[in-house]
Design a protein around this nucleic acid. Structure first.
Lengths: 203, 203
DNA sequence: GTGTGTCAAATAAACAGTTAGTTGCACTAC
DNA sequence: GTAGTGCAACTAACTGTTTATTTGACACAC
């Protein structure tokens, strides 16, 4: 006859799901899908392992849920401005710096989950919207036509990521100053990418 | 009483090591350290699993050996030209395209092995040499001083990677044409980064 | 025979996923 | 109010499999 602990917490499936997502985010960001341990996620969330399967299905689907949430957050919190790509790069830089899990999760996804059918919700749509917006800005003469919209988007994202640490950094004054300089360099780099619309080169 | 096969292959530990490295490269590139299976590597190399431990120690050390070999290959095959960073980016692009495992291996390393003490042999030295060479080119007036040497190196590498597929691509004519255009865009992007020294262009 | 390369088999731990059952709680009937 | 009911939230223990790593014996070259 199994003994049960008195429940310290009131029953609340939504709160449990939220705690699971948080714990899963940490675990997946640190170790990826193959390296993540379902037991550890359950323990960290203080939730019984079996609930992971009732709420999310399996390990992969839990990862997908984590990805969906995080993709939604970037898209929501970093507004896209096709006529100001340097500014966009700067804001993306800031966001990734403030949310160190994001880049690692995205990278794990590329390595472990690309080639499967599942793509984070809203990502494809958002990419299409962004390239369309760039095309429009180019047509309006607000943006260089030296590059295709896809090139501009891909390069801007690449440059915003370029200086991002994959493992968490120290947070002293010297590091903060370095970070500020890296940010400035990224913005300047994108400025140079998009520079030279008006007169110098005719299209 | 164990049955033994007649030895189909002559004994050659060097050849076995080489086959193991090849098989390990494929396995690690596809699945990373946590996802890799020692059994699969042994089977693919047609080498008994136990030899992996004799020759390389354990799974992680085998991965490190794979990384060392691949880092050495990039450094060897892609000459660095600080006064012609666009050309370097182009050559790196070509190399990564011809060696699709490289980028994935490097990415797995960043995710799963950074923060440990092991760094691929020669990588730190090579980075230091490259930034020093950039500094020299800047002092000689051959290269923009808008960016620090570190910025220039990091951005060039980021742009060369930007269009690289993480999963293997189809190889039809249309894709080849797209690849050519991507390469040109990458080179042009780096050109814009380094542009704007006093005279128009030095040869 | 000695040493080195090779192998099948063994081992012990770790793993994702399941099951059968318990508990808290809102609601209803009285 | 309180006894009864249904159900969702939760749990401990377990299952069968997979895993990295080790072992001890075999075979061939010298």
């Amino acid at each position: 006859m199994p003994q049960h602990q008195p429940p310290a917490r009131p029953r609340d499936s939504e709160a449990s799901k939220a705690r699971l997502l948080k714990a899963a985010t940490d675990e997946f960001a640190a170790r990826g899908i193959a390296g993540a341990r379902v037991d550890r996620i359950g323990a960290a969330a203080e939730v019984n392992k079996a609930l992971i399967y009732t709420y999310f299905g399996n390990k992969e689907q839990l990862f997908d849920a984590v990805m969906d949430a995080h993709v939604a957050r970037v898209l929501d919190e970093v507004p896209f401005t096709p006529e100001d790509l340097p500014g966009y790069a700067g804001r993306l830089f800031d966001f990734l710096l403030a949310n160190p899990h994001q880049l690692r999760l995205a990278t794990w996804h590329r390595l472990e989950r690309s080639g499967t059918d599942h793509e984070p919700q809203g990502l494809g749509t958002s990419m299409r919207q962004k390239t369309a917006a760039i095309t429009q800005a180019q047509t309006a003469g607000l943006l260089t036509t030296t590059f295709t919209p896809e090139d501009l988007l891909v390069f801007t994202l690449a440059l915003a990521n370029a200086w991002m640490p994959t493992s968490p950094m120290a947070t002293n004054d010297q590091a903060a100053e370095q970070t500020r300089q890296h940010r400035a360099a990224v913005v300047e780099a994108v400025r140079r990418l998009v520079a030279g619309i008006p007169t110098t080169q005719a299209s």
